[in-house]
Computed example of a mutant assay.
Amino acid sequence: MSRPPTFAPPAGTRAHSLRTSRGTFATLVAPAAAGAAGTGAPAAGRTALLLPGFTGSKEDFVAMLRPLATAGYRVLAIDGRGQYESAGPDDQDAYAQGELARDVLAQAEAAGTPVHLVGHSLGGQIARAAVLLDPTPFASLTLISSGPARVNAAQQEKIRLLSDALAALTMEQVWDAMRAMDPPQDADPVEEPALRRRWLMHNPAQLIATGRQLTHEPDRVDELAALPLAQHVVSGERDDTWPVPLLDEMAVRLGAARSVITGAEHSPNTDRPERTAEVLAAFWDAAG
């Protein structure tokens, strides 16, 4: 589970309900800072849409919002359907990857296209599915710690165990079981209530359906490489979900820009958010 540095939006950022043709999504919005480069007008290509990963939420990007706004970008971090503060149905079919991808297209339209699309882990696979459905709303695509196909064998087993638990137990019971297995040094009394609240507000149907996607996702890199779209692969220097050399190879296959965040692991957006924001803004500037 990702651990955002805080659930409190930074100054200059606001919580927002993004109304789209496919429903309303809980969003954190950071307007481009006054006087920042490129903010003389709401220029095309200076809005970014950030999609969180499995069990995560928009708060996983909270420490990146101000640096990206200062760089001249309007940023929207979004809870997808069934994630944290965005409601979703109890039907697992509602969370099929195609449905989630169409949500992203609607979010981009509501945000004002073209947008720079960013997805972390599961969010990256949903982002690429949206781009493959229709690349025209997007100025670029960045995949953060999101590999070419399904997760590795160890993560597949973890997801299988979680899905079995979610099918048999309540969300609160699963939370208690997960916490009982965590090393004592991982406990943080300050962040624990917010993490627990986020977990309990996820829809278990969303977790089961998207977990299945992570364990069965095919390799779609060649399809993605065929698109005329600027692409960027970002990761930490270590990753326990997709090996870093596999991400290196994926970037080559895509002809994509490649950024490795030193001192970060599977979640550079929370491990080293300012450096991650820096490489994103530099890529977007180059992509125009």
Rank of each mutant, 00 (worst) to 15 (best):
G123L: 01
D103C: 07
A130R: 05
T39M: 06
P42W: 14
R179G: 13
L224Y: 00
V221Y: 04
L169A: 08
P204L: 11
I261L: 09
A43E: 15
D60N: 15
S2N: 06
A167R: 11
A43I: 13
P204S: 09
E85I: 02
G288N: 14
P218G: 03
Q156H: 06
W199S: 04
K158C: 04
D176R: 03
A108S: 12
Q231Y: 06
A209K: 12
I144T: 07
S86A: 11
P10E: 04
A110Y: 05
A205Y: 11
S145G: 14
A287S: 15
A44S: 15
W242K: 02
P273I: 09
A63Q: 14
I78S: 03
H232S: 07
D186R: 08
D103W: 09
Y84A: 06
L200K: 00
D240A: 12
H202I: 09
P189A: 10
Y95P: 14
V75P: 03
D79I: 12
W242S: 02
S235H: 08
L200T: 00
P243I: 00
L141R: 04
D90C: 10
A48W: 01
A277P: 03
P245K: 02
I144P: 00
A94V: 15
S57R: 03
V244I: 07
E237H: 09
P148S: 13
D93I: 10
E265W: 10
T39H: 00
L227Q: 11
A127K: 02
R272L: 04
D188F: 12
A127N: 10
E278Q: 14
T55L: 05
L132V: 15
A251C: 02
A277E: 03
H16R: 06
W242N: 01
I261V: 14
S163F: 08
A209M: 13
A108R: 06
R198W: 00
L200W: 01
P10S: 04
S17A: 08
G53E: 01
H266M: 05
G56I: 03
W284E: 00
A230G: 11
Q97L: 15
G45T: 13
A177G: 11
L133V: 12
E223R: 10
G124A: 11
P4Q: 05
T210S: 10
S267Q: 07
S146P: 00
A77L: 05
P228S: 10
R81W: 01
E237S: 12
E85L: 10
F138Q: 00
A110N: 04
D285W: 02
Q206E: 13
M1G: 10
I208L: 12
L254Y: 01
L117W: 12
L224D: 01
A194M: 05
S121I: 01
G12L: 13
T210R: 06
Q156Y: 04
A36N: 01
T262W: 13
D219W: 11
T276A: 02
V104C: 03
A187C: 12
S21P: 13
A111H: 10
G255V: 07
L65P: 03
R197E: 06
Y84N: 11
E59R: 10
D103M: 08
V234Q: 01
P184Y: 09
D285Q: 14
R238V: 09
E109N: 13
L162S: 02
L65C: 15
R220Y: 01
G123Y: 05
G98K: 14
H116Q: 15
L254V: 14
P5V: 05
R275W: 09
T270R: 00
A94H: 15
M64N: 02
E249N: 07
W242R: 03
D240T: 12
